[in-house]
Design a protein around this nucleic acid. Structure first.
Length: 373
DNA sequence: CAAGGGATAAACAAAC
DNA sequence: TGTTTGTTTATCCCTT
């Protein structure tokens, strides 16, 4: 999960949103779908399918197709075929399943290192509607990143959920947090203790004993207990609501479908929160993809049944080809964060189901695409 | 005001 | 032996 120093492009646009996103959530789109995010799909032709997730990095000639609904009549006309680099053309409607799988692989998010902090654009493009006499905002990194508004449980949850196997060792959790929230890079080491404390104490997380033959390094891996995934999602959702998402943009019920996604393992009987009871998940729990020698360790010393071998169910949102765009506010300006560089073909952007303010913002985007590129 | 949750610190043991 | 990991306890603060 090392950074390859890709710089996330931030397009400075004047969004009328009052919302402030402290940090761009680094985990994959499957977790949340909230009002302050715009979901995009990256339909790529087979020719353009990157050989590795890294190729979905900002330099990829991927087309961006904002995928919300319903489509605004005004913007509906702005979906020309994509010819981005003069060589690879991309058809919006030629997705295959494998394409979607590739496109939903957001591992490049982990490799950009500097994606998450509220960092300035390496190159910023002022909005056309900015007053000429107005000084172009040159946002700069605050002296020190603010503490993320997420509890340690949420951080751990995000880290684990963002891992390919939905499990991480403690060290991996540390790394994810540090890479995702630079606040912890400079923070005193006590937070690591808190992470371990949370892992041990919280019923939401479970330790997986590794196969003896696979023991490399210290410690075990940790996963999210499916019974508590809904509750964790809910907490995360609330955190995002209270800390910067207040629009009614994408209140997509698909999120709940995503919340039904259970990962990694079958847990034994545990206390089920009210939130979980609202979404009883266990009857169709996919088995844990543990190896036969791996043992699920119950923190309460209960014995767990090993469920091995079947393919892990995929997150329906992951399969949808959605990824998230985020915006945040810095001073009086807000910035849209795109998973591509500023050379992204914004002409292909379709903004759907946005409220009036969002459509205004979308118009700014399109103006920007038309005027600045 | 009390209860609960979360953050933090610390001590300790076990594993590496 | 030092570091990392995992567990437990305690305390404080904030929110409800």
């Amino acid at each position: 999960m090392e950074s390859d120093s890709h710089t996330l492009p931030l397009l400075p646009i004047s969004l009328p949103y009052p919302a402030t996103l402290y940090h761009c959530l680094p985990f994959s789109s499957s977790l949340l779908q909230t009002s302050s995010t715009v979901h995009v799909s990256l339909p790529l032709s087979p020719l353009s399918i990157p050989p590795s997730p890294t190729s979905l990095c900002p330099t990829s000639p991927a087309s961006i197709h904002l995928k919300t609904e319903p489509l605004s009549p005004l913007l509906h006309t702005l979906s020309p075929p994509l010819f981005l680099d003069g060589q690879n053309s991309h058809c919006l409607n030629s997705l295959t399943t494998s394409d979607e799988d590739d496109l939903t692989c957001l591992n490049w998010l982990h490799q950009r290192g500097n994606l998450l902090p509220l960092q300035p654009l390496p190159k910023t493009t002022p909005l056309p509607q900015l007053e000429p006499q107005d000084p172009i905002p040159t946002p700069h990194l605050p002296p020190s990143p603010s503490k993320p508004p997420y509890s340690f449980s949420s951080l751990i949850f995000m880290a684990i959920e963002d891992s390919p196997d939905k499990r991480l060792p403690v060290k991996g959790i540390y790394e994810w947090i540090v890479n995702s929230f630079p606040y912890y890079r400079a923070a005193p080491g006590g937070w690591r203790n808190s992470v371990r404390h949370n892992l041990s104490l919280s019923k939401s997380f479970r330790r997986i004993h590794r196969d003896k033959s696979q023991l490399v390094g210290k410690g075990s891996q940790w996963c999210v207990c499916p019974e508590y995934r809904h509750a964790l999602l809910e907490v995360l959702r609330k955190a995002r609501y209270y800390h910067g998402t207040n629009s009614n943009l994408l209140n997509n019920p698909a999120l709940l479908e995503g919340a039904d996604y259970e990962v990694s393992m079958v847990c034994d009987t545990v206390e089920i929160s009210a939130l979980t009871l609202d979404n009883p998940p266990l009857s169709s729990n996919p088995p844990c993809p543990l190896t036969p020698d791996q043992v699920v360790v119950n923190m309460e010393a209960m014995e767990y049944e090993e469920e091995v071998g079947e393919e892990m169910e995929k997150d329906p949102l992951s399969d949808s080809g959605y990824i998230e765009l985020h915006y945040y506010q810095y001073h009086q300006y807000q910035f849209l964060v795109l998973p591509g560089d500023t050379e992204l073909d914004l002409e292909t952007v379709e903004i759907l189901q946005l409220d009036a303010e969002a459509q205004e913002a979308a118009g700014s985007l399109l103006d920007l695409a038309g005027g600045g590129h």
